[in-house]
């Protein structure tokens, strides 16, 4: 982890923060706003890779916890982690790391379809696997019911995965940052 990596982490955390200005669409009934910010989570993993992508989200969420209103809709502070949907925020770190790991793994074969599958695996499947049981635990409702309540968000997240995959593949062609996992292991 040299200085260049630290700068990438800080600037990508800043991108995630800046994406909050895209106006959120709040779905009626369930209330978690659909924002461009989770798109930033997919991009952090897919552009920077596992370690740097995960750490960018750690940095971003740490400063949100310290009271900067950087989440969509100007939310911030410790309260957002203590609310029912806090698990989805914590899950962003795991999602960015997983997307980054898979992107490094499939780097040489990365095309739109593969990138989309990776974004869905990390940004939808893994994220909901963390967020849904979290809601169930803190609100004391069955997991199945928490999942039903979260279902309306999945279409929005699939659309975000479609967009993120396009961005990741285009950025790979124009300004690649990731070193593929296989080659990196040979070098060490």
């Amino acid at each position: 982890m040299d200085t260049r990596d630290v700068v990438f982490i800080a600037l990508f955390a800043a991108i995630v923060a800046a994406l909050a200005v895209f106006p959120p669409i709040t779905l009626p009934v369930v209330g978690v706003p659909v924002t461009a910010q989770s798109l930033g989570v997919m991009l952090a993993g897919g552009v920077l890779g596992a370690a740097r992508g995960g750490l960018a989200l750690v940095l971003f969420l740490a400063l949100v916890a310290l009271g900067l209103p950087l989440l969509a809709g100007g939310r911030g502070g410790f309260g957002v982690f203590l609310g029912p949907s806090g698990g989805f925020l914590v899950g962003w770190i795991a999602a960015a790391f997983a997307i980054g790991f898979l992107t490094e793994l499939f780097w040489n074969r990365l095309n739109y379809i593969v990138a989309f599958a990776i974004c869905v695996a990390g940004g939808v499947v893994l994220l909901y696997a963390i967020g849904v049981p979290w809601i169930a635990a803190v609100a004391k409702i069955p997991v199945g019911m928490a999942l039903t309540g979260s279902l309306p968000f999945i279409p929005g997240d699939i659309v975000k995965a479609l967009v993120a995959a396009g961005v990741i593949v285009t950025v790979k062609r124009s300004y690649p940052i990731i070193t593929p996992r296989a080659r990196a292991q040979k070098q060490t």
Binding site: R4, V7, L11, I15, V167
Partner: peptide, 15 residues
């Protein structure tokens, strides 16, 4: 895409 590429370039310049 232009935003990300621009920020990555800035990051390289800053480092």
């Amino acid at each position: 895409v232009p935003l990300v590429v621009r920020i990555l370039k800035t990051a390289d310049e800053v480092s």
